[in-house]
Design a protein around this nucleic acid. Structure first.
Lengths: 254, 254
DNA sequence: CGTTTACCGTAAACGCCGTTCACTTACTTT
DNA sequence: AAAGTAAGTGAACGGCGTTTACGGTAAACG
């Protein structure tokens, strides 16, 4: 018998979770204001003292990880919304819309981007590292879109036996933010395409966000467009590049 | 008549320059030890107090910029040495050797890489920004190799009138670390290839250094190899990819 | 030569940071 | 009602970037 009056979490647990939410909210406010993220600043904004936060996070780095995770989760909603501006069956368009929104979000929120994607992932506890690599919400979103596209257009994917050994291992026992368990082993080459796509996207966006590129190219987004166009044929979109470019330009201009 | 006894710089100027060198040396030592770079630590290592450093740098950020610049300059020497392991007329091989050495250096010195390449360039003073973008020693080295290759194999380059307007502007009035003033306007599409190559390289290396990738793929270097192979055809090296891959694998293994 | 000036370095202090520890308060559990 | 647990505080430590006021020393100048 399930005890009806018993909530899934006790009063204290609910209170505690609410405090976590408040910590994240205060942190995001700080970042939005352009201030530095610090335990003391977060605590002050919440109306308590810095040591109190140690009841919730074990260190500053853990606060950063927590906030980064939540920021990534929230940003993913905007990527999904961008995809939803296109028809459900336009898988290519939806992917490109998400990817373009990712770029726009990164440029508009460089500090948040840095926190989530330029924060060296822990090398110490390997478990923690796996978490970081597999739980990224935005990563799962992008790979989900790529997978939906493949299930629709069945573009060619590299065969297992033409992959380098380390890559074969990695796609058969994947440590990336993607649902792959129900993908047959012979189709796991798809994961290699996921990684390649992520590399292209990350590269151009990180370069733009950090400003290591001609400002005029950043402003126009031409390198981003070129990068996406260059990758499109690898996922069976060679004939769609012009249409996809139009989608990107619309999002960049808007 | 040149006054023989008169050095180009006075005694004081020489002393001052030596102090700058010592600042850089102390900073690099700190980084090599795995310690944090800080004004106080640098000062202590030099046997003086923190405020004294303000006679040489106006702020902590300026120290970072100074050290980053010198680290980049020093690292470029190793990239050049890697190229020099190959015959002078093997332009493709030399380029790939430099690029591979860049990757290996970045992975072996992630903190230094972060300082130089993941340090957001100033958005404030545009002059300072231009400096950062055009003076990068490693950048000039890579583009120099790419240029030498082009002058040798005359691979096709995009025509000016097929470039997007912002790109055309950027290649005609370039703000990148490359010697382009003696390149004819109709050949300036070469600069666009420079930027594309830099984007590919930066993307994969940054991803590897920050660890946002399957550790096994980082260890094997397969994504890096794939990225270089993917770019090679754009600079007329479609027929050389296997040979170039061998060069990369040798450097990665060694 | 002596005097002036510019430069180099120090000590002290301010306000911020992450972190630890001892202690109180309030709520939950039994 | 008693015991136990969780949350929060205040004080403190060491370190950080940075500013200020002040000495001393070496160069520059008459």
């Amino acid at each position: 018998m399930t005890q009806v009056g018993t909530p899934a979490q006790s009063r204290r647990e609910r209170q505690r979770e609410a405090t976590y939410d408040e910590i994240v909210a205060a942190s995001r406010d700080l970042l939005a204001e352009g201030a530095e993220l610090s335990l003391r600043a977060v605590a002050t904004k919440m109306g308590l003292t810095a040591p109190a936060l140690y009841r919730y996070v074990a260190s500053y780095q853990e606060l950063v990880d927590l906030v980064a995770f939540e920021i990534d989760k929230a940003a993913t909603l905007t990527f999904a919304a961008a995809a939803d501006a296109l028809p459900e069956d336009d898988f290519a368009g939806r992917l490109v819309a998400s990817v373009t929104e990712f770029r726009m979000w990164a440029l508009a929120n460089p500090r948040e981007f840095g926190l989530v994607f330029a924060n060296p992932v822990a090398d110490a506890s390997c478990l923690r590292r796996e978490e970081m690599l597999t739980l990224a919400s935005s990563g799962r979103h992008m790979t989900g879109q790529m997978r939906a596209l493949w299930e629709h257009n069945h573009h060619p994917i590299p065969a297992l036996d033409e992959l380098p050994p380390s890559v074969r291992e990695a796609v058969l026992d994947p440590v990336i933010p993607a649902k792959l368990d129900d993908i047959a082993p012979e189709d796991r080459g798809l994961a290699w395409l996921f990684m390649q796509g992520w590399t292209v996207l990350y590269g151009v966006v990180a370069l733009e966000v950090f400003g290591h590129m001609d400002p005029r190219i950043i402003a126009s987004g031409e390198m981003f467009i070129e990068a996406v166009r260059g990758f499109a044929p690898r996922i069976g979109l060679a004939d769609d590049v012009d249409r996809l470019e139009a989608i990107m330009r619309a999002r960049i201009a808007g």
